[in-house]
Nucleic acid binder design. Structure first.
Length: 469
RNA sequence: GGCGACGUAGCCAAGUGGUAAGGCAGGGGUCUGCAAAACCCCUAUGCCCCGGUUCGAAUCCGGGCGUCGCCUCCA
């Protein structure tokens, strides 16, 4: 039984897709007007794990993630750069996809753009006007927020409270200060599409209501995004969909926690962000990916190089075991001992952790326990069995979490050279020529290999991660 | 000001009623030519503080203190 925390009810809910065996998910993507940053990566990676886990549990998953490729910010940015809006959006969308690909994130099944869905959006708005939930005013269209008695429930606030804040500017055409735009009339020189209310563009929230319906149908199972989207974006989206459908569109609202820097939220206005491009120059993709998974997805995650280093060291424990067991044949029999129990029971434990609101932090703890058990098995002389089970277990876990490094295409040394250096070193060691042996070890180490002298001979494997710093 | 979340070892972090996962760092061992890796042992009688409910609370309730978030663009 999979349990998921629902932001609307603020409780855990059993996961039951409305079409048995199928899961439909819509998450808010990015507004492509600047480089992707670490805050974009977290929900992407989290949803990737959710998709992979649901798939592992036998569901067919349809995953939609939109691009808000027309909006005030893009227009402003394009003006600054003197570039066409569409051009800019396309470039940043490509960058986004490319980086997520590095992070091992599966591409969405559909990645609709707002500008390719203007028709459905206009129809949606027209329907809202017909139902009396929205009204046109001077070329703009606004949603009548007071028409929804539940408005404010998702974000946990009351309309009156919100309007006490000074910041709500009252547009001349609004009936009520809290009403928000469904359609915005175009200013001079701005990109515009024709509509019954004159040329303009969609407001920020309507696209998700219209596109989720287009790609997933009126009702879908999970809606995701960062917690900062709860208000106003998802609150408004929910109001629109409720008005249109006279029912809920979304079964579960799933929000990921924000990234902080020194415990302060990372945000556009604070300009304390780090771009993913920069980070990928600094850390291997799988380290970055799994660092984002090292904490439960709803908790805030403080982003600090020091923490990533710690995490990277932890990951190398797993990597080393993998290097040792990757070629191991399947285990044939099972020995006694608590380590054997851990290895055998791993998969069930691991998947159960993810069933519980996608608890990746606990899933990792179970992986570490398993790694430890495998080593114990090996140390106790049951290497064949321990390696065989560990290989399978790591493959199962990696398929969802993605913690193993991508296989390097080419070694730092040519394979034949590597072999000859290793055997030269073995010879030196047999002759107890420690100086030469140590020199060769230094050469191997500098070339990026880890040298492991054991009772059963010397093994060499590519060093990964932090060791190279 | 309104609303909300959180506060677990030196650090990161799981854990929503049954007696504190995991990782990093640190200390001591085993192994080793040395080193690394790996293994073993140790490192929170206590989970911000004070009350309460309960046979029993890190976990529930009340009150403090502190941190952060939303109310404005944001994933």
């Amino acid at each position: 039984m999979i349990q998921v925390y629902d932001s609307l009810t603020r409780q855990m809910a059993p996961f039951k897709p409305h079409i048995p065996g199928h899961v439909s998910i819509y998450t808010c993507g990015v507004t492509p007007y600047d480089h992707s940053h670490i805050g974009h990566a977290r929900p992407a990676v989290v949803w990737d794990v959710i998709r992979r886990h649901l798939r592992r549990r036998g569901y067919v998953v349809t995953f939609v993630q939109n691009f808000t490729d027309i909006d005030d910010k893009i227009i402003r940015r394009a003006e600054e750069l003197g570039r066409p809006v569409d051009d800019l959006a396309t470039e940043y969308m490509a960058e986004y996809h490319q980086i997520l690909d590095h992070l091992g994130v599966m591409p969405p099944d559909y990645a609709p753009r707002v500008t390719e869905n203007i028709g459905p959006i206009v129809e949606y708005i027209e329907a809202l006007i017909q139902k009396g939930k929205a009204y046109a005013a001077r070329g703009d269209v606004y949603f009548r927020v007071k028409s929804d008695p539940e408005y404010g429930r998702l974000s946990g606030r009351k309309l009156e409270d919100m309007l006490e804040g000074v910041r709500v500017e009252v547009e001349p055409g609004k009936e009520y200060p809290g009403d928000f735009a469904l359609w915005k009339s175009a200013g001079a020189g701005e990109p515009a599409w024709p509509s019954p209310w004159g040329p303009g563009r969609p407001g920020w929230h309507i696209e998700c209501s219209a596109m989720s319906m287009r790609y997933l149908g009126a009702h879908f199972d999970m809606h995701g995004g960062g917690m900062d989207l709860i208000f106003p974006h998802h609150e408004n989206e929910r109001a629109q969909s409720r008005a249109y459908l006279e029912d809920e569109a979304v079964t579960l609202w799933v929000h990921s926690g924000l990234i902080t820097r020194g415990d302060v939220k990372m945000s556009k206005s604070l300009k304390n962000g780090v771009t993913l491009g920069e980070l990928l120059d600094q850390f291997p993709p799988h380290v970055l990916r799994t660092y984002l998974l090292s904490v439960h997805y709803r908790s805030p995650l403080d982003f600090d190089e020091r923490y990533i280093q710690d995490w990277s060291r932890a990951l190398s424990r797993i990597d080393r075991l993998w290097q040792d067991v990757r070629e191991a044949p399947p285990a044939r029999d099972v020995a006694d001992g608590d380590w054997a129990e851990t290895l055998v029971g791993f998969e069930e434990q691991f998947l159960a952790a993810l069933d519980d609101d996608f608890n990746t932090a606990r899933a990792f703890a179970i992986v570490f326990d398993m790694v430890n058990a495998a080593h114990r098995g090996i140390d106790q002389g049951n290497g064949e069995m321990a390696r065989g089970l560990a290989r399978r277990n790591l493959a199962v876990a990696d398929d969802i979490l993605g913690f193993l490094p991508e296989q390097p295409g080419t070694g730092a040394m040519d394979e034949a050279l590597l072999q000859s250096v290793v055997s030269a070193r073995d010879g030196a060691r047999r002759e107890r020529n420690w100086a030469f042996s140590d020199a060769l070890r230094t050469i191997l180490t500098d070339a990026g290999y880890e040298v492991l002298d054991g009772a059963d001979g010397t093994r060499v494997h590519r060093r990964s991660l932090h060791d190279t710093n």
